[in-house]
């Protein structure tokens, strides 16, 4: 599904190299987690994959089902099936959440040569999915993320994911700012989307999210590289001993 090879990335504006050769391969239906200390390049990886400005890829590739992502516009990556759940979802005053969702769904359908959803059909689907995430009608009417609590913003990200039905989902610190109940709600939303044809890359600092969203593979990232890969037990090791041991071990 997603294959990252030898990815090197620096900041566009300054000579700061952030990713120094990332290799990662995620198969269909797999859930991978990336953990790592602050500043290791986890969020940068998610931004580079989704096409945010400000980064320069100096080497390497990232393909989704064999298609080179790094040459596409952000909207083309989305239409190809990539989705990033933001660590800090963006507030857009003046644009209703419902309008936003419908514009996004129909833009992707159009890009894939599918019929746009009628207003009625769309409303039916969105209400059903919103209900599962405990997102009420009021939240759908309000401007995108404006005045939303941290938990509401993250639930809104998962709602977008559910509506857009991407094949490759990246969750960037989706657990940050969530209380226990909200984390459960968000995790349930994610788990409901797990399927054979859909893969996940979960970026997190903490093991506790991985109690809810059980990963198949755990990677440890440090200083712009993946330094260790293992099973779910790797996350537990981090939780118990911190990153110091692993960093020391790898040297």
């Amino acid at each position: 599904m997603l294959e990252i090879k030898n990815l090197h990335v620096k900041l566009e504006e300054e000579d700061k190299v952030i990713l120094k050769g990332v290799d990662l391969k995620i198969g269909p239906g797999e859930v991978h987690a990336i953990m790592g200390p602050n500043g290791s390049g986890k969020s940068t990886l998610s931004y580079v994959l989704s096409g945010r400005d400000g980064y320069e890829v100096t080497d390497g590739s990232a393909t989704l089902d064999g298609q080179e992502l790094l040459e596409m516009e952000p909207e083309e990556r989305a239409a190809a099936g990539l989705f990033l759940a933001f660590q800090y979802p963006v507030e857009i005053p003046g644009v209703g959440n419902m309008t936003f969702l419908r514009t996004a769904v129909n833009a992707q359908r159009k890009a894939r040569g599918e019929e746009e959803l009628s207003a009625g059909d769309f409303l039916k689907v969105v209400r059903e999915k919103a209900k599962a995430l405990k997102i009420d009608a009021e939240m759908l009417k309000r401007p995108v993320n404006v005045g939303f609590s941290g938990g509401e913003k993250k639930r809104n990200e998962i709602l977008q994911m559910a509506m857009l039905e991407p094949r490759m989902c990246i969750l960037d610190e989706t657990d940050s700012g969530l209380d226990v109940d909200a984390m459960k709600l968000v995790s349930d939303g994610v788990n409901a989307l797990r399927s054979e044809g859909r893969s996940f890359l979960v970026i997190t600092h903490y093991q506790r999210l991985l109690d809810h969203i059980k990963p198949d593979v755990v990677h440890i990232m440090a200083a712009g590289r993946i330094i260790k890969t293992g099973g779910p037990e790797l996350a537990l090791e981090v939780e118990t001993n911190g990153y110091a041991d692993i960093l020391g071990e790898v040297g």
Partner: peptide
């Protein structure tokens, strides 16, 4: 930032 957010959801620039 808002522009990127919309694009990342598939809305053309």
């Amino acid at each position: 930032t808002a522009l990127f957010y919309l694009q990342s959801r598939g809305v053309p620039r």
